[in-house]
Amino acid sequence: MMKRNPYLKIGLTIIGLLMLITLFAPWLRSADPAQIDAAQLLMPPSSAHPFGTDQLGRDLLTRIIYGARISLSIGFIAMGIAVAVGILLGSLAGFYGRLVDTLIMRCADVMLCFPTFFLILAVVAFLEPSIFNIMAIIGLTSWMGPARLIRGEILSLKEREFIQAERALGASDARIILRHLVPNALGPVLVNATLGISAAILLETGLSFLGLGVQPPVPSWGNILIEAKSTLGVAWWIMIFPGLAILVTILGFNFIAEGLKKIIG
């Protein structure tokens, strides 16, 4: 299945490598990502600091590696939440139809009518920008896509013979939904979710730009990259390396999504 699918191959390689790096972060770079070193402020790349140092003299490579942990977790968990909520609501709406459907889909419409950003701000104000809250916020504001997809798939699957047969055999609703409908509808959702992971990582970058992202000293790719703004012209490494890290990662996820699309469709 991988053979004639270069996108999937490249994507999986990138993301796989990245996961390994984050997993072995403490062994790759022994320094504490929050270690301030007044003697090493904004040092260009060198053998001791391959990616240079930031405004507090912290090793940039270490921060990017530890930031990968935070940013990838945000991507995965936020999308996990979105997909879970989306599947639950989407399948309920699709399966039961009528009032349940109207209610849930109107809710989704309402959510889609808000600028995402407004919802995020409101929730950030409610909850303070801790890492977990940022995941929850991004997740809870992006379930509408998966929900719509699942609903659509289920609507078309519902009337198919094998479902009718199950029903005739007296299978419970829950069984039909969980064993037959959801697994069959999962394909497009998977593609959507992979894209969603990269969207979540980019969204955190945007939130960091506004000072609403993961708060320092915890490193995230977003808050590492925004330092590039205040060091413009003197520290190209802060502009380039975190930016490339984000770029390559997002590219990786998008390649996977593209590859998956080929397999499914």
Partner: peptide, 22 residues
């Protein structure tokens, strides 16, 4: 915020924990 991070580190050295909330 950066000042807070530096104070945090100095206080840690004398055994006082200061958490930062932004």
């Amino acid at each position: 915020i950066r000042s807070a991070e530096i104070i945090q580190r100095r206080l840690k050295e004398i055994g006082v924990e200061m958490k930062i909330k932004v």
